[in-house]
Write a protein that binds this DNA or RNA. Structure first.
Lengths: 131, 131
DNA sequence: CTTATTGTATTACTTTACTAATACAATAAT
DNA sequence: ATTATTGTATTAGTAAAGTAATACAATAAG
């Protein structure tokens, strides 16, 4: 049975965003929004490799990154499994906040370099509805 | 007379953020918050080169980027000048918005990969006071 | 015990990003 | 006209990122 994640998933090879990043982001997003739950089995590295047309190592790199963040658990001969309870929820609020701040600052810097100031940015974001 | 911008400006060489980016960001930020106004003369490339301890070309790269965005105007033998009215203000609102959206999406993707969902992110940002 | 399946490790190739050295070109001052 | 000052262009070197080819290791199933 084909994994739900694989529906309509194509790597954009000329987007400037590296393949492994697209993979890691998609998986992480699915975890964050609840599509993937703790204990779920991910597609095997080789399956993604075939379906997406990328090197097995590229998939492995994405998996490794998530594993390193504690979001994933790989078991040889068995598969890779989502691991949400411990690591993520246990990620202290202060650390999360620090990470967010860092990301936000980076976005600010880039926006500024396009002639936008923080007020405009905040205005834009605050208009967005909380999904 | 030493340019105001140069006060307490050191390049962080081991921050992972490239020197030219630090330069471009600082200048753009100064433009966005009003520290630099239209027509202001920037430090010369060679002056920044000496003060910051980076290659002239590195400074030039930052200037080139801003020039390309229409925020700067370089005149040989004369200097580089801030150019805010035309380009930036004329940057159509729709384009600004598109850019913001792109930046925001990128931030979201990265935040998700740290186990955060959009709601948390929005909550964090909305708590920030509009400077 | 053997085999198929899976994640992991090693190594190398290719491209891109960043920085640097150097020379060139235009402007202004004298 | 000459010279000093400034931005620009060309070229090259270096490091890092991304991808790939291949071999290895652990687990489960028969």
């Amino acid at each position: 049975m084909i994994h739900p994640l694989l529906k309509d998933w194509k790597i954009e090879f000329h987007s400037g965003i590296p393949a492994y990043r697209q993979i890691a982001n998609r998986l992480a997003a699915a975890m964050a929004d609840g599509t993937l739950k703790h204990g779920d089995r991910l597609p095997t590295i080789r399956e993604l490799h075939e379906r997406l047309g990328v090197n097995p190592n590229t998939v492995a790199k994405a998996y490794r990154e998530l594993t390193h963040k504690g979001l994933l658990d790989g078991q040889r001969g068995f598969g890779s499994f989502v691991k949400l309870d411990d690591a993520v929820s246990a990620l202290p609020a202060t650390k999360k906040k620090a990470k967010l701040k860092e990301l936000y600052q980076r976005m600010l810097a880039e926006a500024r370099s396009h002639g936008l100031n923080e007020a405009q940015i905040l205005t834009f974001i605050k208009q967005r509805k909380t999904v």
